[in-house]
Design a protein around this nucleic acid. Structure first.
Lengths: 193, 193
DNA sequence: CAGGAGAGCTAGCAATGCTAGAATCTCAAG
DNA sequence: CTTGAGATTCTAGCATTGCTAGCTCTCCTG
């Protein structure tokens, strides 16, 4: 049993190694550089080893995405809890979200753009996904007077996502980014007095 | 000179044939099915012919995208001009945009998601791109009191784009789509009396 | 020490975007 | 009608991709 557990531990460790290597390579050189050969070389094993851990490249990317949601949830939480009013909290979370996307574009892509087969909008979604969405919701809910918080959160999230992806792909100019971001957040706050 | 012009005309015709075939194939079976071999077979020429017209597959996709912007501009215009108030016009344009995305997902992807090297947010952007954005702007401007119309348009557009891409990739549930759409539009109308 | 199971690697497949160089066709000049 | 130059199109192939079959080697078990 002890040998068995040691093996499993080593296996789990190698799995983490794969996911970490994939993430780092993607963040350093983009997902195009993450080929199975390159990744295998990075972890100093042969290609087929990857397939003994993951069904394919997409599954590896999905694992990286889950890691990303953990990080994001943490950053959103920090932003939210260090604000002193609901209004500021929402603005802070919005900025944190945008910041995450800009700072770690490859990670953001695999979380939100690439097609990965993760259950997203269901109860079976991995915990980190629900945690990240939950943070956004906690920031939105206090300001969603008379509306269903879930729907409002989803809509604001979509707005953030749209602003960032369109800008990053060159479809929106970078210059007015801050104004757009502020405008979006503002539209989701109840009429100011 | 007449022979020369005939040749050029035939060449232009074949170029349209390529773009049309690429679009139809993509709309029927998705962009993954649009390989250079398959596309060459579809137009009944060999692969290298494609490269005598376009620099590569990306350039073909860019051409399809421009066609898509033409279509979209037309549909948005129809929606906008057949509404009877600014408020209804904006709602109609929003619905038309969403409808376009849902009806022609492959086309939408190449216009807004895929990386294609078209100049987007500059004065050199192809006319159809500016036309489509212009339609949105015409719908937004009357309601953008005290704000810069360009910024407001961009932000609303991003919201629409986010809602649609997140839903199509499974990251947002389909069920509340109409409510989210209505909520977004509503947030971009001045306070109702 | 034998034997068997499990783990890893080598080698290879099929598909992709793209290109070099051969082959074929066009059309004006003789 | 022939011929040759120039343009056009095709055949064949390259390098790279994700993925897998099947051999080999190691290491625990009896």
């Amino acid at each position: 049993m002890s040998i068995q557990t040691r093996r499993e531990r080593e296996r789990a460790e190698r799995e983490r190694l794969i996911v970490t290597a994939a993430r780092e390579l993607a963040e350093a050189e983009g997902w195009d550089a993450v080929t199975t050969r390159r990744l295998a070389a990075e972890i100093e094993y042969s290609q087929p080893v990857l397939y003994s851990h993951f069904k394919g490249k997409d599954a590896i990317m999905a694992a990286v995405a889950v890691q990303g949601f953990e990080d994001m949830a943490g950053e959103l939480r920090t932003a939210r809890t260090s604000a002193s009013s609901p209004r500021e909290a929402l603005a802070a979370v919005g900025r944190a979200y945008a910041d995450f996307c800009e700072r770690r574009p490859a990670l953001y892509d695999v979380m939100f753009t690439h097609a990965v087969d993760l259950p997203f909008a269901t109860a079976e979604a991995p915990a980190p996904l629900r945690a990240a969405f939950g943070e956004l919701r906690l920031a939105v809910a206090p300001l969603a007077v008379g509306e269903e918080p879930g729907v409002v959160t989803e809509t604001l999230w979509a707005g953030l996502h749209g602003l960032l992806t369109l800008m990053r792909s060159g479809r929106l100019p970078r210059e007015q980014h801050d104004r757009r971001l502020a405008l979006l957040i503002d539209r989701f706050c109840p009429a100011e007095e």
